[in-house]
Simulated assay, not measured.
Amino acid sequence: MRDAVTTSAPESVLDVISELLVEKFEVPSEEVRGSAPMSDLLIDSLMIVEMAIAVHETLGVKVDEEELRAATLDEFAASVDARLTDR
């Protein structure tokens, strides 16, 4: 019974963003590490804009493109998660 609870638990913000990177932006999964700068994962300005839109559509959190450029994956996920928690 405990497994059912675990599998039905909501995905973490880090998991959701990682999934977007791999599935929508076709970033190789081995490159999606918490310490990776988002600017390395999203290699051009259009991808950064599209990620900001995807995060807003998926999680309902508006993010600034500069925030995406400046943060690592872990930092960005923590920032988005904090805004979700503050609601």
Score class of each variant (00 low, 15 high):
Ala70Asn: 12
Ile17Trp: 02
Ser12Gln: 08
Ile48Met: 08
Met38Ser: 04
Thr85His: 14
Ile48Asn: 00
Leu41Arg: 05
Ser18Val: 00
Ser35Gly: 09
Glu23Met: 07
Glu26Phe: 12
Thr72Cys: 09
Arg2Trp: 11
Pro10Val: 11
Leu21Cys: 04
Met47Gln: 14
Glu65Lys: 09
Ala36Thr: 10
Ser39Pro: 01
Ser35Glu: 14
Glu75Asp: 12
Asp86His: 08
Lys62Val: 03
Glu31Ser: 12
Val22Trp: 00
Thr7Leu: 13
Arg87Asp: 08
Leu14Ser: 14
Asp81Gln: 15
Thr6Gly: 02
Glu57Asp: 14
Ser45Trp: 07
Ala9Ser: 11
Thr7Met: 09
Val5Phe: 15
Phe25Gly: 01
Arg83Trp: 06
Asp40Phe: 12
Phe25Val: 02
Phe25Lys: 08
Asp40Gln: 12
Pro10Tyr: 01
Leu14Arg: 10
Leu73Tyr: 04
Gly34Ile: 03
Lys24Tyr: 06
Val27Asp: 00
Gly34Leu: 06
Met1Ala: 14
Glu50Cys: 05
Pro10Asp: 11
Ser79Leu: 10
Arg33Asp: 05
Arg83Ser: 13
Leu14Asp: 05
Glu57Cys: 01
Leu73Ala: 08
Ala70Cys: 06
Thr6Cys: 05
Val27Glu: 00
Leu46Trp: 08
Leu68Lys: 04
Leu14Ala: 15
His56Leu: 06
Leu46Ala: 06
Ala70Arg: 13
Ala71Met: 13
Ser45Cys: 06
Leu14Trp: 02
Ser35Asp: 15
Ser39Asp: 13
Glu67Pro: 00
Ile43Leu: 02
Met47Ala: 14
Glu66His: 13
Ile17Arg: 01
Gly34Val: 04
Glu65His: 03
Leu14Cys: 04
Val13Gly: 05
Ser18Gln: 04
Glu66Leu: 14
Ala52Gln: 02
Pro10His: 07
Ala78Lys: 12
Thr6Lys: 13
Ala71Tyr: 10
Lys24Ile: 07
